[in-house]
Design a protein around this nucleic acid. Structure first.
Lengths: 203, 203
DNA sequence: TTTGGAGATTAACAAAAGATAAGTAATGAA
DNA sequence: TTCATTACTTATCTTTTGTTAATCTCCAAA
């Protein structure tokens, strides 16, 4: 994700908005601060809102039958996060959305945004751009499960998101990658051992 | 996927089209018949086309470093299939798209469809509906990898697509679900054994 | 009818992952 | 500084998966 490029795209959309739409938008958008472990949304809720993350980091997780938390995504600054149960399925969210750091979000009314796009055809390409990017992310993730091993997935995660690895506990990264925290710990050790061997034979 | 409902949505779009657009569309859409193991598109190609499957079944696969084929999706009648490398990334397809049965497809020019939608704002909601459905599918698949075991994924696959299981060789289903054909065979045996035990204790 | 080939199963072994529990390290609050 | 909590690691054992190769089962082409 080249977030800067995307950002320009999204916020460039404002220039096409009329005064009334801008007013509506601002009137229905609020800046909220989430403390560590606060929730943007909880399981069972059905608020049709999307959050734009100005600063901080949010994880989505659900609680399975055994009572274990399964984290499925993390999102950080300059990204959007929302419950797709609510938005795509019109059903209560099965997921919790929880801040892992002190997080500032813009809470935006989803339906209002849709209305505004409907009234401003110029914004259509922005929405398309957004959806295409969400699709790319999701397809890439499916591929990572069908084409790569857990170890390869972790290596790729570290390589592509080195900053995020240091901000998110390993136990969450583990379930995002479809494995248990214990297994990830072993994989990390395995990788470290390989690195050691590489370095020793080099000398 | 309730394909019938979707179909209505997509083809209901025609009623909003002007004569010229309809002409253009038909002039650039061709019905093709693929024999078993024929390709709709091959690795390396970059044709900006989407296929609507009238009849039959197509699988997408790529060849990994070891030379093994990894099948990642299958699509069948009343569904669309295309290379997302080409459409979303403007790069040559890494995947092959191969018919597993004698398959009839409508080959549609992607860019032309986009132009027509751009000229006919009423079609916008159709595209949105389509993209939302693709997203739902993809999200559900990511979830299946993060929340469920290989065995559970197979059981779910059989339950939700009982007809498809009988039309696609197990070795393809295996890699779609992120495992090897050997492992799937063992899972099938395991399930059969469990079923046996269930039935015997019932009596 | 025979036979070749593809798909599926089975076997045997190594490697990896899950489950559970215990131990260690790091962190922040009192 | 101490203590308690949380994250991470390690250990042990069981289960599952990967790998490779052999075997079995069909089915369609010769």
């Amino acid at each position: 994700m080249i977030d800067l490029a995307k950002l320009n795209h999204y916020f460039g959309m404002f220039k096409d908005l009329g005064m009334q739409d801008l007013k509506d938008l601002f009137a229905n958008t609020s800046l909220k601060t989430l403390e560590v472990s606060d929730f943007f949304m909880k399981e069972g809720e059905q608020k049709r809102q999307i959050a734009y993350i100005k600063k901080g980091l949010i994880r989505a997780f659900l609680v399975d039958e055994k009572g274990d938390e399964i984290t499925t995504v993390v999102r950080w600054e300059d990204q959007f996060i929302t419950s797709y149960d609510v938005i795509l399925y019109n059903r209560p969210s099965r997921f919790y959305y929880q801040a892992l750091e002190k997080t500032e979000i813009l809470v935006i009314d989803y339906d209002l945004v849709q209305e505004i796009i409907a009234k401003n055809p110029k914004l259509e390409q922005g929405r398309l751009f957004f959806l295409h990017n969400v699709l790319k992310d999701s397809f890439a993730r499916v591929e990572s499960f069908t084409l790569y091993s857990p170890e390869e997935r972790y290596i790729e995660f570290v390589k592509s998101k080195p900053d995020i690895v240091n901000r998110v506990p390993d136990k969450y990264i583990a379930t995002i990658l479809g494995m248990t925290p214990v297994s990830l710990s072993r994989i990390r050790k395995r990788i470290a051992t390989k690195e050691m061997q590489k370095n020793s034979t080099k000398k």
